[in-house]
């Protein structure tokens, strides 16, 4: 195992976040705060409690998930797309480093960044609402697994994309809509029955529901289904990444 190389990539990526601190950390925290102000304070005051939890507190897990998903994808996709775009990827490909180690470096850094961001948003939320976390261990597990899984997805997008437009396409057209429609701001049973059924096809529902369960013990779907869904996501992402490296797709012609 070439740990030095993993460390080199990991530190390089973390340093990149350090250079763009405003964009990496401050901006997501500010936008999440705005969500709290608009949804929590303004709209939330007109919405009753949801299953015994104040609306402001109810949306916290969903908001963290929203940021976690979008930031993991954008961090990881940019992290691998940029060296591809500038050409510096040659160095990683010519180094004595395995595929697993490359993924560990890039995805590890992206997941770390988004997990830290998630915790930061959680801390920000405490300024707006009273929070209690029923299952802190499960909360952290969900946070980490989601960060890793969606960083893997971001890594895949970053390799697939051959233009900045494509890099934005998947997050913009798929991730964001799925997250907004994934129960971040509402409980599924607030929807008409037809849409309740449709929404169950949205994988993000399971993530948000499971994450919310770890906070308040309430969930839209069974917690086992949520954990299983994260597992399936992770497995599919890993399978795609390993296929990418096996075939050299977009990396080694």
């Amino acid at each position: 195992m070439n740990l030095q190389a993993v460390r080199a990539i990991y530190c390089f990526e973390m340093a990149r976040a350090g250079r763009t601190l405003l964009q990496s950390l401050v901006s997501p925290v500010i936008s999440t705060s705005l969500y709290f102000v608009v949804f929590g304070a303004a709209i939330g005051s007109r919405i009753q409690e949801v299953e015994g939890v104040s609306y402001g507190a109810f949306i916290v897990p969903g908001l963290i998930m929203l940021m976690l998903l979008t930031q993991s994808v954008s961090n990881a996709s940019f992290g691998i797309f940029f060296p591809k775009f500038t050409g510096t990827i040659y160095e990683v490909l010519s180094a004595p480093i395995s595929y697993f180690e490359i993924v560990l470096g890039y995805v590890g850094a992206a997941a770390t960044k988004s997990a830290v961001l998630g915790l930061l948003i959680l801390a920000t939320a405490t300024f707006f609402v009273d929070l209690h976390i029923l299952h802190p261990f499960m909360m952290l597990l969900f946070l980490l697994l989601t960060a890793v899984t969606f960083s893997l997805l971001g890594f895949i997008i970053g390799i697939w994309a051959d233009s900045f437009e494509k890099l934005q396409l998947v997050p913009l057209l798929i991730i964001t809509p799925l997250t907004f429609l994934g129960g971040s701001f509402y409980a599924i049973d607030m929807l008409p029955p037809f849409w309740q059924t449709v929404t169950l096809a949205n994988p993000v529902v399971y993530l948000v529901s499971g994450f919310r369960w770890s906070f308040y013990g309430i969930s839209d779907v069974n917690i086992v289904a949520s954990v299983a869904m994260v597992g399936v996501f992770l497995a599919v992402s890993l399978a795609v990444v390993s296929w990418i490296f096996r075939t050299g797709y977009r990396l080694r012609p």
Partner: peptide
């Protein structure tokens, strides 16, 4: 090709690490 925003020292050190050297 270069990592535009890296310093010379860092980018050369990065290469060394990438090849498994302390």
């Amino acid at each position: 090709t270069s990592d535009a925003f890296e310093t010379v020292w860092n980018t050369v050190s990065f290469s060394r690490g990438l090849f498994g050297h302390k």
